[in-house]
């Protein structure tokens, strides 16, 4: 576990001479601060501390200073934002005060980022271990066992499900629509569901090379609707026996086709301002 500092301990460690490195995270873990980053890095810190304890590394300590324990220090350092992480390198008798190095949270605040920072700058050599989470392990094992049991007992139904053409059809169509509307982009770039503009939600991201999840869903729906219209036109309508019903269905479907298509163009020209074509 990382060492929790208070004002005195902090001064003792940072002021005097030392032959070890200390990583100090200035943090505010209290609920009232609502500091998500603090909890994030605290988690990373615990993993790193655990790995340190498992290793032979003795010249490195990971610590944290909570605002409630060391308020005066925060004032002295004029810290305005937490978490702030600094590596105090060992004093070697020549450089005074010993060099410090801030940790850059933009490189990530997870355990691997902290670990690689320490390996690189504190010249520490230890491997990252995660403490075995027996509860989670047990849960997974139980879930797998239950799943297998269920699968075995319902194998007949599952087999018929796997052989159902309709299911595969729906799966394949959903798959193509999902991937043809840039959902991998949203996944990789971690796009938000929607944006905000003038306190109102904004569904379409500005610009050609960005997108919100909402707009991909809208576009996916228009593709699905268009495809559905085409399928109905080719498959269902000729089977309608009543001539008047057939005519009504056709009017409806063709109208829907034109509307959906023009909405598609509308969506696209919203993204690409130079696009010259509109329909309705």
């Amino acid at each position: 576990m990382p060492i929790e500092l208070d004002t005195d301990l902090y001064r003792t460690i940072t002021k005097g001479s030392r032959d070890f490195s200390v990583l100090v995270v200035y943090t505010a873990l209290g609920e009232q601060f609502k500091c998500a980053g603090c909890h994030l890095i605290q988690e990373a810190l615990e993993t790193v501390a655990y790995s340190l304890a498992q290793s032979d590394e003795t010249n490195l300590y990971v610590t944290y200073l909570d605002f409630q324990q060391g308020g005066p220090i925060f004032g002295e350092l004029k810290l305005t934002s937490v978490p702030h992480t600094v590596l105090f390198k060992p004093t070697d008798g020549r450089t005074h005060p010993a060099p410090t190095l801030p940790f850059d949270p933009r490189m990530g605040m997870d355990a691997p980022a902290v670990h690689s920072f320490l390996v690189k700058h504190a010249k520490a050599s230890f491997r990252l271990h995660r403490p075995t989470n027996y509860v989670a392990l047990g849960q997974t094992a139980a879930a797998v066992a239950v799943g297998l049991l269920f699968g075995w007992s319902a194998r007949g139904q599952l087999l018929s499900l796997a052989q159902s053409r309709g299911l595969w059809l729906m799966g394949a169509i959903a798959w193509t629509i999902i991937f043809c509307t840039g959902s991998m982009w949203s996944h990789i770039r971690q796009a938000p569901w929607a944006g905000v503009e003038n306190h109102a939600p904004r569904l379409f991201a500005p610009g050609f090379q960005t997108q919100y999840i909402a707009e991909t869903q809208i576009v996916g729906c228009t593709y699905a609707a268009f495809a559905l219209v085409v399928v109905l036109l080719a498959v269902r309508v000729p089977r309608v026996l009543d001539a008047r019903k057939q005519r009504a269905a056709l009017y409806g479907l063709v109208g829907a086709m034109v509307l959906v298509f023009s909405y598609m163009l509308e969506c696209f020209s919203r993204k690409n301002g130079a696009y010259p074509f509109r329909l309705l």
């Binding site: 169509i173 043809c180 991998m184 576009v219 593709y223 699905a224 268009f226 495809a227 298509f261 696209f268």
Partner: peptide
Amino acid sequence: PTPWVNFFLDLHALVALFPAGV
């Protein structure tokens, strides 16, 4: 990765007809 506009730019109505073809 490819945003949705690129699919429409490169394939236009075909990308909407694609699921019907499947």
